[in-house]
Amino acid sequence: MANKRSMNMKLLNARLTSKLSIVLFGLVLVFSAEAQSGPSRGGGGDPMGGIDLPPGFLEQNKDYKFPDDITKYTATDFLMLVRRTDIRSSFYNSDMSATISMVTVSPDRGTKTFKQQIFRRDKDDAFLMITLEPESRKGQGMLRVDNNMWRYDPTSRKFTHTTIKDTYENSTVTNNDFRRWQRSIDYSVEKISSGTLGNYNVIIGELKANNDEVPFPYIKMYIEADRKIVLKVEEYSLSMKLLRTAYYTQYVQIGDSFVPTVQIFQDGLIPEKRSQTTYTNISTKPLPDYYFTKEYLERVSQ
């Protein structure tokens, strides 16, 4: 009798699980259909809820009239200049992808080389970075979309949250350096002056952070006046200790956007330690929407 009841129970359970399987398969099909009728590929995909730019951020700057004489710049002019460099560092009308090599020279740790593939969709504040080299870290990656950010470890197949303030691979480079710039949002102007840097006339602005999300509370920017591109940034601690100096020594211009393709970083605390990031294989070809998903990060990793 007990055996018969047990058999019946097992049969009932098997039927329940079978029905559950059918329901779940149905859900897969429904969601598959939804996915296939989703947004079109590439830069034309629906926004994924990107960062909210301040009202008029793009429009106000478009027709802003900058002084012809660099000695006449006011704090407002300089902040608009920084905003112009922010906007020009971005690709609001297209996607962007590139390969970045980063070489770090340390007096204690020697020379280390890393290579990354990055994908950007700035209008959604979407950013994906995948390690290509060294081979031992190939496939590790980071995905950021709006306020959601994940780091992926292919060994344990685990995604974890991280912060944008993280230092990248113990170098003088931070994760922030790979993103579009937004210094005009994060900082306010304290003091301005003018000078020269090599062959270029520059406007020099000292800025203070207006939030604690940025890694450096104070920065000093050197911006080339004619084409309005950043050449040098000094980054300071709260006690005004120089922590890092960044040099942007090569740019490419694609449309209205400027990409600093050679960036040299010198550590302020260990002056012999320096890094260089070099961009290559740049493209503004539209990227598929699925690139900015955890699934893609998992698939292209080891």
């Binding site: 062959n199 270029y200 020594t249 490419v252 400027f258 010198q266 961009y279 740049i282 493209s283």
Partner: peptide
């Protein structure tokens, strides 16, 4: 790091790439 050397060369530090070229494929810089 010599700033005069980094920014004092004869070659312009900005290279212009045609938009259609960049959107059609990849541009190898190095």
């Amino acid at each position: 790091i010599d700033e005069d050397s980094l920014f004092g060369g004869s070659k312009d530090i900005v290279t212009v790439i045609d938009e259609s070229t960049a959107s059609a494929g990849t541009v190898q810089l190095v």
